[in-house]
């Protein structure tokens, strides 16, 4: 893995001159243009902006789910923009956790199995124990053997939170984590998210429309038409 010559203990994500352009029938479409962003370890940061402003694209790029058209991204000391997809997968496996608006639980697996999955992929031997602990932590002890379609939206998102935190990730990316939930359930999820974040000292990068949620983060970045403002 290629490492940065300049080691910095505090900087966990560094994006320079980040651009994403896609070809359309009407010519190239610039989704992101020259975004520069530095995120410090343990920091919580909210990316806000109108629909289509490029928030999710930026999140996808920072998490290594997609490759930029231009620019570099460094996570810890690794330039993920120099890596192929399999290299980025390894970075995700080692350092990153995710929470999504649509929960993204595997429908065939129970709550417990969904939480165990990332540990299984890491060949972790204590996967059942750790997963049960996290599900206890999100108050789903009674729901271990339930499948996603037997759980409410809030319960599904709590399973997703448990799955995200079970690997004690260095960075957690959250895409509209309360977008599919009513306000009361959303608040409960946010509480849990920030509690777990606090406990595990995770760096949190979240995309949201919700000003209340954004305001709980230490820093807010606003995007407009693919540019940071």
């Amino acid at each position: 893995m290629k490492q940065s010559p300049q080691k910095s203990e505090n900087v966990i994500i560094q994006a320079e001159n980040l651009s994403k352009t896609v070809a359309t029938a009407n010519g190239p479409l610039h989704i992101l243009s020259s975004v520069n962003l530095t995120i410090i370890s343990g920091e919580s940061i909210a990316i806000v902006g109108a629909s289509g402003s490029g928030k999710s694209t930026l999140l996808g790029l920072l998490a290594g789910l997609d490759a930029p058209s231009d620019g570099t991204i460094k996570i810890k000391e690794y330039f993920i923009t120099d890596m192929d997809e399999d290299g980025r997968a390894e970075i995700r496996n080692r350092f990153i956790g995710f929470v999504f608006q649509s929960f993204q639980l595997l429908p065939g697996l129970t709550a417990l199995e969904n939480v165990m999955l990332p540990l299984e992929l890491r060949n972790d031997r204590n996967e059942r124990f750790s997963a049960q602990n996290l599900l206890d932590r999100v108050e789903l002890t009674e729901r271990l053997s339930h499948r996603p379609n037997q759980l409410s939206g809030g319960e599904q998102q709590r399973v997703a939170l448990a799955r995200a935190f079970v690997t004690t990730p260095t960075i957690l990316f959250a895409d509209e984590p309360t977008g599919n939930l009513d306000s009361k359930t959303g608040e409960h999820i946010i509480e849990l998210l920030f509690q777990l974040n606090q406990e595990q000292q995770t760096t949190l990068v979240l995309v949201t429309h919700d000003p209340a949620l954004a305001s709980r983060c230490e820093r807010i970045i606003k995007l407009e038409a693919g540019k940071m403002v």
């Binding site: 997809e85 997968a89 496996n93």
Partner: peptide, 15 residues
């Protein structure tokens, strides 16, 4: 498709 995407998101390589 979704399961594969999630597995890749969790760090599974293509092969």
């Amino acid at each position: 498709f979704n399961t594969s995407a999630m597995l890749r998101c969790l760090g599974c390589k293509q092969n």
